[in-house]
Amino acid sequence: MKASRKSTRPLPRSFYRRDPLVLAPELLNKVLRCHDGRAGRIVEVEAYRGADDPAAHSYRGKTPRNAVMFGPAGHMYVYFTYGMHWCSNVVCGTEGEGDAVLIRALQPITGLDLMYAARPLAKNDRQLCNGPACLTQAMSITKLQDGVDLVAGETYALVDDGMPPPDRPVQTTRIGISKAAEYPWRWYVGDNAYISRK
């Protein structure tokens, strides 16, 4: 399916003010754009639902590490995991609830030369962004981007270029967690080569 219209305007704040279980599949096929020309289409996501979700960083309340999750919707929450990787999330829902959606994979669109420079071990386009740690490397997202306002769009933004979410996204359990691992809160674009794994 091809995009029907191009837009350079970031998605509005109202787009993010929804429950993560509603927002997550709606994020599929939106475009994450960096100010330097790098961009990728979101093809895989996972929802994390605050106090209702033992796997969410916000489950036990607000801390300096997860403070952005409790702020206004439409900001980027970035955290460090396994002592080596950054992961990027979209804060959503109602302020104070601690809801977010993890971006798990992107399909690279533009700026691939910059992505390869940031991920020199990638052997092909698929390996650039096929996982949460890979895509943050490819898009140069680190702790410095924690709290970035995606609606202002000065450095990073989410854009709708006219390609709608899939009518029937694949829905499965989440990956790489030990708590609430049975929750079916992961969605991805079926048959897309750029997801992290089937």
Rank of each mutant, 00 (worst) to 15 (best):
I141D: 03
P108S: 09
P108D: 09
N89A: 05
E154T: 09
Q107E: 14
R104V: 02
V148P: 00
S196H: 11
A122I: 08
R65H: 12
A152M: 00
K123Q: 06
G131C: 04
G61F: 12
R186I: 03
T63C: 01
L112I: 02
G131I: 01
M139R: 03
T8W: 12
Y82F: 11
D191Q: 15
T172H: 05
E95I: 04
L102P: 03
Y59H: 15
R65D: 10
D146Y: 04
Q127T: 11
F80Q: 09
R5S: 14
E46K: 07
R49H: 14
I141M: 04
T142Q: 07
V91F: 01
K2C: 15
F15T: 06
T173L: 04
Y79F: 14
D161I: 12
I109R: 10
A56P: 10
A118L: 07
A117Q: 09
R13K: 12
V159E: 07
K123C: 02
A56M: 11
G40A: 05
W187K: 07
A133Y: 04
Y16I: 12
M115K: 01
R168S: 14
R5Y: 13
V148Q: 09
Q171M: 14
P72G: 05
Y16W: 13
V43K: 13
P20F: 01
G147Q: 05
I42G: 06
L121G: 08
T142M: 05
H85P: 07
S196A: 11
N124V: 09
L158I: 07
P120I: 06
G131Q: 00
V68D: 04
A180P: 08
K179R: 15
A3E: 15
N130D: 13
N192A: 10
P165N: 03
E44R: 05
A51H: 15
D113K: 10
A122N: 05
S58W: 03
V45Y: 02
D99S: 10
P184Y: 07
P12F: 10
P25L: 09
S178Q: 14
D191P: 08
S14W: 11
T63E: 04
C134S: 12
I195W: 05
W185Y: 15
N124L: 06
W185H: 13
A157T: 00
K123L: 06
G96N: 06
K30P: 07
P169D: 14
A122S: 09
D160Q: 02
E182Q: 15
A117K: 11
K30L: 15
A105P: 10
I177D: 01
P165G: 06
